[in-house]
Amino acid sequence: MKTCTFINAAVLAVTLSAAIQASAALKTCEDEIKETNTFLSEQGAAPINDVTDLATTLRNIKNFGHLPDRYITTDEAKRLGWSGKETETLWGLKPTNKKWIGGDSYANPALPAKQLWLSADIDVQKGYRSPKRVIYSLSGQQRFITTDKYQHLAELEPCQ
């Protein structure tokens, strides 16, 4: 019986060690976004302006399984009085002040179909939505960004 327990403990130790090493091998989200910005610039696409904010959003999704609290869905914003027009700021209304749109479902045939994909705004300025989004799934680690309102997607490597 002790041999079996010893083997299980050894397997657990190896598994934990592998998980820690894999985690340590991941780039920081800031570094991954900066590398992606270089790629976007080489393609003639707009870069992500607020690297720190996107990194925080990516960590929140990875670590807690949801967007930061500042996000509300389009339906929630409309229930609170936002018209949904791109020319109207979300911050013009007290209930949606400092909120960003995120958590709406997103469909694209180029993405794996077996996952539910969601999108969230990034690089919001004064409550106006930009064409930049992060696309994510809660059932996996794949993340994509678009800086041209879904015309092109760039994959982000898993990060910490």
Rank of each mutant, 00 (worst) to 15 (best):
M1C: 03
K2E: 10
T3M: 10
I7C: 07
A9G: 08
V11E: 15
L12P: 03
V14S: 11
T15M: 15
T15D: 14
A18T: 09
A19C: 10
I20P: 07
A22W: 15
S23C: 06
A25W: 14
K27G: 05
T28A: 06
D31L: 05
I33F: 13
I33A: 03
T36C: 09
T36S: 14
T38V: 05
L40D: 09
E42K: 04
Q43V: 00
Q43D: 08
G44R: 04
G44W: 10
A45S: 13
A45P: 08
A45C: 07
A46P: 11
P47R: 06
I48D: 08
N49I: 11
D50R: 04
T52N: 06
D53Y: 07
L54N: 05
T56I: 13
T56A: 15
L58N: 07
R59N: 14
R59G: 12
N60E: 11
N60S: 11
K62T: 07
F64Q: 02
F64V: 02
G65K: 03
H66V: 00
H66D: 09
P68G: 08
D69H: 08
D69Y: 08
R70C: 05
T73D: 00
T74M: 07
T74A: 01
D75W: 02
D75Y: 13
E76P: 05
E76R: 10
A77C: 07
K78S: 03
G81T: 04
S83G: 01
S83T: 12
S83N: 02
S83Y: 03
G84T: 10
K85T: 01
K85M: 00
W91N: 06
L93V: 00
K94C: 04
P95Y: 15
K99G: 03
I101A: 08
G102W: 13
G102Y: 12
G103E: 03
S105N: 07
A107V: 03
A110E: 14
A110V: 11
L111C: 03
P112Q: 07
K114P: 00
K114A: 00
K114G: 01
L116C: 04
L118T: 05
S119A: 06
S119E: 13
A120M: 08
D123Q: 05
Q125W: 08
Q125A: 10
G127A: 07
G127I: 09
Y128R: 06
Y128P: 01
R129S: 08
R129N: 10
S130T: 05
K132H: 15
R133N: 12
V134K: 07
Y136D: 04
S137L: 01
L138G: 03
S139R: 04
S139C: 03
R143E: 14
I145D: 14
I145M: 11
I145L: 07
D148G: 02
K149Y: 15
L153G: 13
L153R: 12
E155S: 15
E155D: 14
E155P: 12
P158H: 15
P158R: 15
C159E: 09
